[in-house]
Nucleic acid binder design. Structure first.
Length: 470
DNA sequence: GAAGCGTTGTC
DNA sequence: ACAACGCTT
């Protein structure tokens, strides 16, 4: 048994509780050196995601400090940084929690090979998901394509019980040097600026736990009934905590069961699992049509309508409210995401990847699997039997899910003598180059809802004949 | 191979 | 009602 230190490489697992790697590391009794690395994979994330990760690192570093440890920050290629740190500290092992998106996986495979080639031990642990993507399979041994069948099968498995958070951590005799988090300037690419997003963000494990308890105590009972109304605070709001691992899905699963269960809510957790299941079986999910027939669909590439969509200036109030909400808060209500995405891909007939890219840059809860699945589901290219005539009508959706207009009023300033503070905040946060003016008239619709629907259906009919051709 | 089913809609 | 097919057991 070695008593040399273990490097614990933290990525999207910024928590102490129910952390399989950390739990095992503490049990080993060896000195532990927590590390976070700003590497090309992290630098490839969108602006809001990079910033939010930094917020998570700051809070997690403080949590480690409270237990007598530290979070060592280094910048560079992960394999080189880890080898360098091993040399500095005498560590002979590097552990981490498994990641599942292709960019991170490719990196991790290479890092593992490099470390082992250098005579070090490299181990990865579960923890980001309830079920490993390959643990759920059909009778034929293949991946699932329908959520309901997937979730039926997955629900028969036991995710196990959450692990306790460790007490004191064993630390090395001396700590390697750490870079300064502020010097990483993780918020530098934010268009709206850090102060705007910080106003809507409460990072960290304690905040995640508080949000989870608050949800189970108050919102859970009416979740199924109210979750679709974007003006209400009726959703769990846990997505960004899951993204950075500030709470584990297993903790959510088990706490929900302890609170009396909530099948609808747990099935939403199931969708996150399903997204990673799909990504595992189709690593190109974020780039390529899941159904390759759609490669011949006559999408428009990026275009002026799409730019108006990004700016929340389409003239369709529910859609604009959604885009503005995301710009200011880094989040967007689930119902609004579907309507906004449907509008871009159907009414504006724009390639789903244009929307995916914008979401990737703006969302603090950005999840590589869930977003790829969601965009393809809306666009029609994803694993779903949604009939082509299922095109969201943005007006009908607003009447149904924002009946008193509270959501639209919160985000649309134009035409109001006394706009909501959030609606005003959007104009302050928007880039000067967009030349937005809250006093100006609200934009005229670029396309009427019925006409946009017809355009989408026409394109679909053309494509159906196109895809028959060799 | 038959049978049953499929997140979120629209008019 | 629409219009309809792939998925899974």
């Amino acid at each position: 048994m070695s008593d040399r230190p273990i490097l614990l490489w933290f990525r999207r697992d910024l928590r102490l509780a129910d952390h399989p790697m950390l739990h095992e590391a503490v049990r080993s009794g060896r000195p532990l050196i927590p590390v976070a690395i700003l590497d090309p994979v992290a630098e490839g994330w969108g602006a809001a995601a990079r910033w939010r990760w930094g917020e998570g690192l700051r809070v997690f570093g403080a949590a480690l400090a409270a237990r007598g440890a530290r979070l060592v920050l280094r910048r560079g290629l992960a394999a080189e940084v880890l080898a360098q740190l091993a040399g500095e500290t005498g560590a002979e092992a590097v552990w981490w929690s498994r990641a599942y998106d292709p960019a991170a996986r490719a990196r991790d495979v290479a890092v593992k090979a490099a470390l082992r080639g250098a005579g070090m031990a490299a181990r990865s642990f579960p923890g980001h998901l309830l079920f490993e993507p390959e643990a759920v399979a059909t009778g034929q041994g293949t991946g699932y394509k329908l959520f309901s069948a997937y979730w039926r099968a997955a629900s028969r498995l036991d995710p196990g019980r959450p692990l306790p958070a460790p007490g004191a951590l064993s630390v090395p005799a001396s700590w390697p040097a750490s870079e300064d988090l502020a010097a990483w300037r993780l918020g530098a690419a934010l268009r709206a600026g850090e102060d705007v997003l910080r106003h809507h963000s409460a990072p960290g494990e304690a905040a995640a736990q508080a949000r989870l308890s608050g949800f189970l105590d108050t919102r859970s009972a009416r979740y199924a009934e109210r979750r679709d109304f974007p003006a209400e605070d009726a959703t769990s709001g846990l997505s960004e905590y899951l993204t950075y691992g500030e709470v584990s899905p297993r903790t959510i699963w088990s706490e929900t069961a302890r609170a009396g269960g909530n099948a609808k809510f747990l099935s939403e957790l199931g969708w996150r699992e399903f997204a990673y299941h799909l990504l595992h079986h189709a690593p190109g999910l974020a780039q390529d049509n899941w159904n390759r027939d759609w490669d011949r669909f006559p999408w428009r590439g990026d275009n002026a309508d799409a730019e108006a969509w990004r700016r929340g200036m389409t003239g369709e109030p529910f859609v604009d409210a959604a885009l503005r909400e995301m710009y200011v808060t880094g989040r967007m209500h689930n119902r609004a995401r579907m309507v906004a995405a449907s509008y871009l891909t159907k009414h504006l007939r724009t390639d789903w990847r244009v929307g995916l890219d914008w979401f990737a840059d703006c969302l603090t809860d950005w999840d590589p699997a869930a977003n790829a699945m969601g965009w393809q589901w809306v666009a029609g290219s994803g694993p779903d039997a949604a009939p082509y005539f299922r095109v969201f009508n943005p007006v009908t959706q607003a009447e149904k899910f924002d009946p008193d207009g509270a959501y639209r009023r919160r985000w649309i300033a134009e035409g109001r003598a006394d706009p909501h503070p959030d609606a005003r905040a959007y104009f302050q946060a928007a880039p000067r180059a967009w030349a937005l003016d809250p006093q100006a008239a609200y934009p005229v619709r670029r396309v009427a809802p019925a006409e946009g629907r017809q355009r989408a259906l026409d394109a679909y009919e053309r494509w159906k004949t196109l895809k028959m051709l060799p």
